[in-house]
Amino acid sequence: MKPHKTGRAHASGTGSVTRFPRDAWYALARADEVGRSPAGRVVHGTGVVLYRTSAGTVAALADRCAHRPYPLSLGRVAGDLLISSYSGFAYGPDGRVVSVPTQKRVPVGAAVRAYPVREYAGLVWVWTGSPGLASRRPLPALPWLTEPDWTTFGADWETAAAGGLLQDNFADITHVPHLDPALAPPVLHQVPPRLDVEVTEQQVRFRRDFPPARLQTWQSEATGLPPEGEYAQHEEGWFAAPGLWADRWDVLVPGEPLTLHFTHALTPVDERRTRHYWAVSRNFSPKPETTGILRPILDGYYRKVKDALEVMQALVDREGPAPEVRVRADAALLEVRRVMRRLLTEDTAR
C-alpha cells in the first residue's frame, strides 16, 4: 500500500514537460478560419474537424469517419450536417450519425466524439478532456482581446518543438537580450531587478519593476515618447492555463501606463510539435502606422524563438534529455512545470 500524493511531485531534472493535460482548453483555429467548409486540426496527436452550423456556432468533432478511417475534414457541410465524402455518412454537430446512404435505419449508437467548443478572443477553443468538466473550468479572461480600447495584431504558426519548450521559453525571459538584442529594451541589458514570482494552485505569475531608463528605438517610435526620455517600466508574465500564456510590458507615464499585452495560445499538436497563436495588444496609438512599427519587431522576435526552440528539440531528439543546471531566475519555470505535472495526474481523460 502506498498512499499517493499529487502535490509538488518531484521534478525529473532531465528537461521539459512534453505531455499536456487533456482536461484543458486549447486553441485550434482563429475564429475567421472556421466557416461553412470543414477545417481539420490536430491536438494531442488526434484529428479534430471544425465547422460552423447554419446558426454560426462552431462544432468540433473527431476528424475520422466512424465507418472507415477517412477524415471528415475532407467532407462537406450541408445545412447543419457534416457529410463524409468517402462513406456518405452524415453527422450532426453533436457527433451523432443522422443518416447512412445504404440503409434506412442508422446503426444504433453510431457517432463520433463531439468536443465542447468555445469561441473567445478571436480564437476557437476546444476542451479535449472529459466533456462534463468543460463548463466547470472557464477560460481565463483576456479583456485586452475582447474590449474595444485595445488594438491587436498577431500571427500563428507551428513550431516543431514540444509545448514544454515553449512554456519554458515564456517562463524565463532572461534569454531575450541574448536572443534578440535589438528587441530587448535597454533595461534588460542591465543587472536584472528583483524577480517576484507568485504562485497559486494552477497559475504562476512573475513581475519585475525596472528603474527609469531609455527606451528601445522601436518603443519610442511606437509610443511617440522622446528617445532621450527615461521611463520606469514594469514587466509581467502569467501562466494562466496549460494552453495559455499572457505577458505584459508597461511603460510608466503620468496617468495610465502605455501597455503591451502579449498573448500566447499554445496547442500541443503532438509531443514534438506545437501550434503557437500570438497576439500583441496595445492601449495606445491605434493607427496602422504604429502596427507597422511593432509588427516586424515582434514577428521577427517570435520567429527567432521558433527557430531556437526547434534547434533545442532537434538536439534533444538527437541526444535525449539531460540534467540541467538551474539558476534562481528559473523559479517561475520550475513552478510552471510543477503545476503541469499536477494537472497531468489529475487528468480524467487519457
Binding site: T174, V191, P192, P193, R194, L195, D196, V197, E198, V199, T200, R205, V327, R328, A329, A331, E335
Partner: peptide, 12 residues
C-alpha cells in the same frame, strides 16, 4: 557577480 534576486511567494 550578484545573481538576480528572486522572490517566490504564494498569492496573498
Amino acid at each position: 557577480t550578484l545573481s538576480a534576486e528572486t522572490v517566490l511567494h504564494e498569492l496573498e
